[in-house]
């Protein structure tokens, strides 16, 4: 077998695949954050908790009602999305007129409450979720577990569908218009508050969907979203929240960068995304795809 810069190809491609999978989650989560921020002006710190809730919903649906993974892929995001809608109606909508910081603090507090409750009920050690499509392909240069391949493809489809929904449909046009100028859109007779609620529900559902996809790969645990949401914040800073496509590209790209770092200099793999963030701030403070406001 050939070698690349002294690295066996199995290790290289294995880590690249892992990077791509991580990138898929970064992309899906940063996408949701960007969509929510655009509409609500709130950085949704609860995003990591809602991702965790998605995984938990799938796990509980399987454990209690014997619902298969494929059904959970639809049901779990709906449940968590509805929870998001309730949250928005009851709590979030009270702080839109305040400074962004309060939204950040409020959602941070909500994340603590949700994660604390799950930890209290189910402990912090994780529970396994059975792999829905075991097995894999031998591609010659590496072994590809089928499920992991599926996650990357599914994430791509989800991201592109979200992009299409926002950039190319009528509802998406309303959404973008309301982000630009809510008062004017309201004057045209569109129910902006309902649009906001809907957006939050969809963003939360997206996070939950990512959580369901992650369940068979990771352990389902109360704290699975804690560190992830912090990395996703860095991803959002790097990409800028101005563009949907930007979020997707940045998410996948940073996953790959992380994977490559794991191959060539493992000690830095945890911190490389933050280093990239520092570099981007130095060179292009508004973010790779951001507009300076």
């Amino acid at each position: 077998m050939f070698e690349l810069l002294g690295i066996p190809p199995q290790a290289l491609f294995g880590q690249l695949l892992l990077g791509l999978i991580n990138g898929a989650f970064y992309a899906m989560l940063s996408l949701g954050l960007a969509v929510i921020f655009g509409m609500l002006n709130v950085i949704n710190f609860t995003h990591g908790a809602q991702y965790m809730m998605g995984a938990f919903a799938a796990w509980l649906l399987l454990g209690i009602f014997d619902v298969p993974f494929w059904a959970s892929l639809v049901i779990a995001p709906i449940i968590v999305g509805l929870f998001g809608i309730v949250l928005e109606k009851l709590i979030l909508k009270r702080i839109y007129h305040l400074d962004h910081l309060y939204g950040f603090l409020l959602t941070f507090g909500l994340a603590l409450v949700i994660e604390g409750l799950f930890q209290w009920k189910w402990g912090s050690s994780g529970a396994p979720y059975p792999n829905p499509i075991p097995g894999g392909f031998n591609l010659g240069f590496m072994f590809l577990p089928t499920y992991r391949g599926f996650v990357v493809v599914a994430a791509l489809v989800i991201c592109l569908a979200t992009w299409y929904g926002i950039e190319r449909t009528k509802l998406g046009a309303y959404l973008r218009a309301a982000t630009e100028n809510p008062t004017l859109v309201r004057a045209f007779g569109i129910n902006v508050p309902r649009l906001i609620t809907l957006t939050y529900g969809l963003g939360v559902a997206l996070a939950a969907l990512a959580g369901v996809l992650a369940a068979p790969i990771q352990q389902v645990s109360a704290l699975m979203g804690v560190n992830l949401v912090l990395i996703v914040f860095a991803v959002v800073v790097i990409g800028g929240m101005g563009s949907i496509m930007g979020s997707i590209v940045t998410g996948f790209g940073l996953g790959l960068v992380e994977g490559l770092t794991k191959v060539f200099y493992p000690p830095a793999s945890n911190t490389v995304i933050f280093v990239v963030m520092a570099l981007v701030l130095l060179i292009k403070p508004a973010g790779l795809f951001g507009q300076t406001k």
């Binding site: 709590i91 702080i95 409020l106 941070f108 507090g109 909500l110 603590l112 949700i114 604390g116 930890q119």
Partner: peptide, 18 residues
């Protein structure tokens, strides 16, 4: 109370902000 401290802290955040 263990993990419940987090729940209480989170609730305080929410109440104070609101």
């Amino acid at each position: 109370t263990g993990e419940f401290v987090l729940v209480i802290q989170g609730s305080i955040f929410v109440v104070i902000v609101l």
